[in-house]
């Protein structure tokens, strides 16, 4: 008997979503990187994270790279774009945290406006630890930047109404729906947001993320199940592209933050951080992520090449 190569053809397809003016996410009708089965859609996008405040808590190796530019988000973003060519910039308004600098939504909007004016790639707008504050910040930023197709990361169960109404409907941007590693929760939130009136092609989702080693199996399994439901069962409520804030998780893990002094047998800290970021990013991409957010330039370079070699 001769070999018959198997293949899995699905009736469903991930919706193609355009971020900014031309960055496409999703559109695939096969499992992640299964080029041998059919159309893999748009190449997964690789973005870089910056903050509105100086990233005091980041490991020294990252501060060595970005420190000279990190006093101003526009300078920081331009440095990243010119030097490392990411597909998008994720500006995280860490400084808006009420327990920290408590930057006002108006101030955040001014920063976002300057970024939009000077940075040639699309923006992903991320918030701080306070869901309440994020709703206010996102509303102001979306208002200042209407119809830009920027992604707002994220709307959750507690604040989706405000964020959906402002970002997704009134000001024509893209809402990212964030749930906690559970297919049913992801589905429910997507349905609630579309019922508000946000169009599915103005949505992406973050069904939860973790660093490798830290409950990562739940992340992979949730994403596997979402992609199978979207493709195999043609479940349109789960056909949104997935965005994964990899860097938010990996640079908290001990493997990335322990100094060499602290863990002498582990060797250089910078390499450990990169390896955690690279592994987590490759891991979520293999499970179906359509965009990843990263910090270290080396991670950006490696993950970009990894994607290119697979497609």
């Amino acid at each position: 008997m001769a070999y018959k190569k198997p293949s899995q053809k699905f009736s469903g397809k991930i919706r193609e979503v355009t971020v900014g003016s031309g960055l496409k996410l999703g559109g695939e009708s096969v499992l992640p990187f299964y080029k041998f089965d059919g159309d893999t859609g748009a190449k997964p996008a690789v973005g870089m994270e910056i903050w509105d405040v100086f990233p005091e808590s980041w490991p020294q190796s990252l501060k060595d790279i970005f420190g000279p530019y990190a006093d101003d988000p526009v300078k920081w973003a331009k440095f990243c774009v010119e030097k490392y060519n990411p597909d998008f910039i994720c500006i995280k308004f860490e400084g808006a945290n009420p327990e920290g600098d408590d930057r006002s939504p108006e101030d955040c909007a001014r920063i976002a406006e300057r970024l939009a004016g000077e940075v040639p790639v699309p923006l992903v707008i991320a918030g701080c630890d306070s869901d309440e504050k994020n709703a206010k910040v996102f509303t102001k930023v979306a208002e200042a930047l209407p119809d830009k197709n920027y992604v707002f990361l994220s709307a959750i169960e507690a604040n989706y109404k405000e964020i959906g109404a402002a970002c997704g409907m009134a000001y024509g941007n893209i809402v990212s729906a964030e749930s906690s590693v559970d297919l049913n929760l992801a589905k429910q939130l997507n349905i609630l947001i579309t019922q508000l009136g946000v169009k599915p092609e103005k949505m992406v989702m973050n069904p939860g993320c973790a660093a490798v080693g830290y409950g990562f199996e739940y992340v992979v399994t949730t994403m596997d199940r979402i992609k199978l439901a979207a493709l195999d069962q043609n479940d349109s409520t789960l056909q949104m592209p997935i965005i994964s804030p990899v860097s938010f998780e990996t640079w908290k893990a001990k493997e990335a933050i322990a100094t060499e002094e602290d863990m002498p047998e582990w060797g250089g800290q910078e390499e450990r951080g990169i390896a955690m970021e690279v592994s987590t990013a490759a891991g979520v991409l293999a499970a179906g992520s359509n965009a990843v957010i990263l910090r270290h330039p080396k991670s950006v370079e490696v993950i970009r090449k990894f994607i290119d070699e697979l497609l």
């Binding site: 490798v212 080693g213 990562f216 582990w266 060797g267 450990r272 390896a275 955690m276 592994s279 891991g283």
Partner: peptide
């Protein structure tokens, strides 16, 4: 080396739970 081992062994342990 450790930089490779820390993520890879941890990932493997997770996926095979």
């Amino acid at each position: 080396d450790y930089s490779m081992a820390l993520p890879l062994f941890a990932l493997r342990q997770n996926i095979y739970t």
